[in-house]
């Protein structure tokens, strides 16, 4: 849009010739991209093909043999995964857990990151670096002390308990990434907003948030994904009873204690991946260029 306005308008003929030439020049680019993506996707393709094969063949032959006659494909593993007791219920439970556990940390981390980026207060350097330091804390060491607090407060086994836990565990990264993003926003924009009498509340919601949509969208995806795929934290704070168990618990229970029946995990993996991928695709349109267009004095 802006870029096009800058270059002189080419004639129709020139434009077509350019496009052809450009297409040819860009051919290697496409080849490289496609090759890289193919290599990257091979493991996933192997899983996808396996998930459509009969269970006994998954353990005894390679997945590519499915493409050699006789084409042995079957929906057996999907049927088995979908018919597992409580799968539907646990899908809903996963949503109940994941949505608030994504929204809460994003919002409060954005407040804090905004303060770290644009407000002056004593001790903020130390505090901010401490937040980064907390990234390295192994979650397993926090489980027992927090569970003791939960028992005293009656939070064990409640959704509120797990929302807060996931929120807290996601905060260090969220604050870190968002502060970095906020501090790259142009300072004079906020200064002039303040001169115009805008409160920090207004500046935050009408300037900082809209301009950081790509950063917030990417964080939202990560947090959503981690909470969605979490198993241990849910088992500790929420328990695995069918009324509250998330999908990871139900899927984990598809194999027996000796690891028998692991083939069904191939199908289950795709079933549980579906929603996160939809979320990713939906949020993709916020990864756009030029949100800051016009705000920088060149």
């Amino acid at each position: 849009m802006k870029s096009r306005a800058l270059s002189p308008a080419p004639s129709e003929r020139e434009r077509r010739g350019n496009r052809l030439l450009q297409g040819l020049r860009r051919f290697p680019l496409h080849i490289i991209i496609v090759a890289l993506v193919l290599i990257w996707s091979t493991p996933t393709v192997g899983l996808l093909v396996s998930s459509f094969r009969p269970a006994h063949l998954v353990t005894t032959t390679g997945w590519w043999t499915a493409f050699i006659p006789p084409w042995n494909f079957s929906l057996e593993l999907y049927e088995q995964a979908l018919s597992a007791a409580g799968m539907g219920q646990s899908f809903i439970n996963s949503l109940f857990i994941t949505i608030p556990a994504t929204v809460i940390p994003l919002m409060i981390a954005a407040f804090a990151a905004y303060a770290f980026a644009w407000m002056r207060f004593p001790g903020r350097e130390i505090l901010f670096v401490a937040v980064i330091g907390l990234l390295v804390v192994p979650l397993q060491t926090t489980l027992i002390p927090v569970l003791r607090i939960y028992n005293n407060l009656g939070l064990t086994g409640t959704f509120v308990g797990i929302w807060l836990a996931h929120s807290a565990y996601g905060l260090p990264l969220a604050v870190y990434l968002l502060r970095n993003f906020f501090s790259t926003l142009p300072r004079d924009m906020f200064e002039s907003a303040a001169l115009d009498g805008a409160s920090p509340f207004t500046a935050f919601f009408s300037l900082a948030l809209p301009l950081s949509v790509p950063a917030i969208a990417s964080l939202a995806i990560f947090q959503f994904m981690w909470v969605w795929n979490d198993l241990l934290i849910a088992l500790i704070y929420l328990g695995g009873e069918p009324s509250v168990a998330p999908m990871t618990v139900t899927i984990g229970n598809l194999t027996n204690s000796l690891g028998g029946g692991w083939q069904v995990l191939t199908a289950a993996a795709f079933i549980s991946m579906l929603l996160p991928l939809v979320v990713f695709f939906t949020l993709q349109r916020y990864f756009v260029r030029g949100l800051l267009a016009g705000s920088v004095k060149g």
Binding site: I108, A109, F111, A112, Y114, A115, F116, M119, R120, F121, R124, L127, A130, V131, L134, V137, T141, T142, I144, P145, V146, I149, L164, A165, S167, A168, Y169, L171, P172, V175, P200
Partner: peptide, 23 residues
């Protein structure tokens, strides 16, 4: 003087309970 603490408050509180105290 108070504003930054109220803006960072929820984060600091959660971190204190879930990460700093256990650490």
């Amino acid at each position: 003087g108070l504003r930054p603490w109220l803006w960072t408050g929820p984060v600091l509180l959660l971190l204190l309970v879930y990460l700093i105290y256990p650490t």
